[in-house]
Amino acid sequence: MTSTTADSTVRTSDTSVPLVPLLDERWSPRSYDATATISDDQLAALLEAARWAPSARNSQPRRFIVGRRGTATFDTIHAALLGFNSVWAGNASALVVAVAEITTADGDAIATAEYDLGQSVAHLSVQAHAEGLHTHQMGGVDWDAIVAAFELPANLKPVTVTAVGTVAPATELAEELAEREVAPRSRLSLDELVLVSE
């Protein structure tokens, strides 16, 4: 069973076998402490984790735009968020745009760019949890606004925005979002995911 505390800031997974705590306890909240900040060392650790993620042929086709709350970069990223994302993400300590380098300098397509970027963001999210932080990845973003604001060239494709911060009680959210925050977590079973295993 998934467990929560009274303020729902700690949640574990309903797994078929035990996982290491950093994976078991990782979840994606929407309620963030609007007064909490992220230190230089914490931010560096998150980006180092992303930097050391594997990539095909060590091509490292990932780039990041990082804005801390209170900066123009944060405000620009936040302004591009769509729907409910724009309602809650402004309380995060930082917003990180994950960008895939989809072609080489010679114009050759990097087929694994988005996959490799995803691995680096996964590493970032696990390191964030180790730092006592939480992350929430978002795809509901006006990407044209991000490209224009940061003058991204055609070979750089923004893929996700990740909110990073200190989790706050779900009661600080509007009712509809608060209900989502404490709803049971679920995943497809291994039988549904694994096509062949011998």
Rank of each mutant, 00 (worst) to 15 (best):
S59P: 03
P169V: 09
S120F: 04
Y32I: 05
S8L: 10
E131T: 06
S189T: 15
D40C: 04
T76I: 04
S55V: 03
F150I: 06
Y32M: 02
P29N: 08
G90T: 00
V164F: 01
L173N: 08
G139V: 14
A178R: 15
E172K: 13
A6H: 13
A130L: 13
N58H: 06
P18T: 11
T162P: 08
Q137G: 11
S186K: 15
S16L: 14
A130C: 06
M1C: 08
D116W: 08
A56C: 13
W52H: 10
A45G: 10
A130D: 15
R30N: 08
T166K: 15
D106P: 02
T12R: 00
A94K: 05
H129V: 09
A154M: 07
L177W: 05
A92P: 04
V17T: 15
G118Q: 07
S31Y: 05
A111Y: 12
A122H: 15
D75F: 03
S86P: 07
S31F: 11
G140I: 02
T112F: 12
S189W: 06
I110S: 00
R57Y: 11
F64W: 05
G90Q: 06
L173H: 07
R187K: 13
G67T: 01
A178V: 13
T9K: 06
D116T: 03
G140P: 01
S13V: 14
A92W: 00
S13I: 12
I102F: 02
A105R: 08
L152H: 04
A109E: 15
